[in-house]
Every structure is written in structure tokens, then in C-alpha cells.
């Protein structure tokens, strides 16, 4: 079982993310994160399982999941490449527009130098790319002590914090 950063701590990864093409036949037992399309096609069956989460690829927005968010324990946002920054806006929308309180997890090309921004946009869980040290990545959460803008964790911009 791999490791994941959740709420600033390294813990065992309890979730398995499944790619679209591995979803033939029987699903694995235990916590699984399925693609949006698979979720939409099998929504009722998956909802009754209770241990299923959904991941969004770039181009798939939180609004596509709007009606299901209350029932989901976790939404993962996948970064096929770290340079594709759509996921930052998705995380922010999940938190501020839809008030999603569950885990928002970054998966894929997730690296130390992006973690600080990701946290500010509402991610609280990070599956750091496997070939990189998760311990070192954790340090990325502390890159800055100063932020000008408000963010998901501190909605007030610096000029309103008093």
C-alpha cells in the first residue's frame, strides 16, 4: 500500500484510483476512485456501495458532479501533467462554489513544487508521483508564510486580515 499526504501528514493510502480501461467486469473491493464517465454510467449501483469516489480529468468540471457531491467522501482531481492548471480552479470550485467538505485529492503528476498552491486552492490530499520522495514533497507545504490573496483556507486577502 502506497503513502499519501492527508491534512499535512503522511499516511497509508486507503484508496485505489482506477483508470477507465481497467474497469472491465468485476470491480475490486475496498475504496476505489472511478472515472467520471464510469460513475455517471453506473451511478446508482456505485452509490449503494458507499466506498466509491470519483476522479476528474482535465476538462471534467465539478459541476458535472454537482448533484452527487453530498454523497461522495472524496473527489480526486487528476493531473496528467503538472503544467495543466485546470485542476486548481476545479478544486477551488469544489470548496467555495459547492461547499464540498470531503477529501479533495490531487493525483497524477503531483510534485513538491506545486503543493503549496494546491493546498491553497483546496486540495487536502496528495498522491505524490511514485518516483519522488513523499517526505521531501511534504516540505513543499511550508514554502511560504506570506500570502497576498485570500484562498480556500483563509478567504480573506492580506488587507482584510487586520
Amino acid at each position: 500500500m502506497g503513502k499519501v499526504i492527508i491534512d499535512g501528514a503522511i499516511v497509508d493510502n486507503q484508496w485505489q484510483r482506477l483508470e477507465g480501461d481497467t474497469l472491465e467486469g468485476e470491480l475490486p473491493t475496498g475504496n476505489i476512485i472511478v472515472p467520471l464517465a464510469y460513475w455517471q454510467a453506473n451511478r446508482d449501483a456505485l452509490l449503494s456501495r458507499g466506498d466509491v469516489a470519483v476522479w476528474l480529468a482535465p476538462g471534467e468540471e465539478p459541476k458535472d458532479l454537482e448533484d452527487d457531491l453530498a454523497a461522495l467522501p472524496l473527489v480526486a482531481i487528476h493531473f496528467p501533467a503538472f503544467k495543466d492548471g485546470r485542476g486548481y480552479s476545479y478544486a477551488r470550485e469544489l470548496r467555495t462554489r459547492y461547499g464540498f467538505k470531503g477529501e479533495v485529492r490531487a493525483t497524477g503528476d503531483v510534485l513538491r513544487d506545486q503543493l503549496f498552491y494546491m493546498t491553497r486552492c483546496g486540495f487536502n490530499a496528495f498522491e505524490v508521483r511514485e518516483d519522488r520522495s513523499i517526505e521531501e514533497a511534504l516540505e513543499g507545504l511550508n514554502d511560504f508564510s506570506v500570502t497576498y490573496q485570500g484562498d480556500v483556507n483563509e478567504p480573506r486577502p492580506l488587507y482584510r486580515r487586520g
Binding site: 503544467k83 492548471g85 486548481y88 506545486q114 503549496f116 498552491y117 494546491m118 497576498y148 484562498d151 492580506l158
Partner: peptide, 13 residues
């Protein structure tokens, strides 16, 4: 400038 500096959402446009 301050709003755009290290704006977390818009670093990977």
C-alpha cells in the same frame, strides 16, 4: 501586482 503575485490558482495557465 499583489493579487497576481503567487496567485495559487493562476500559476499554470
Amino acid at each position: 501586482r499583489q493579487w497576481s503575485t503567487f496567485n495559487p490558482e493562476f500559476a499554470y495557465l
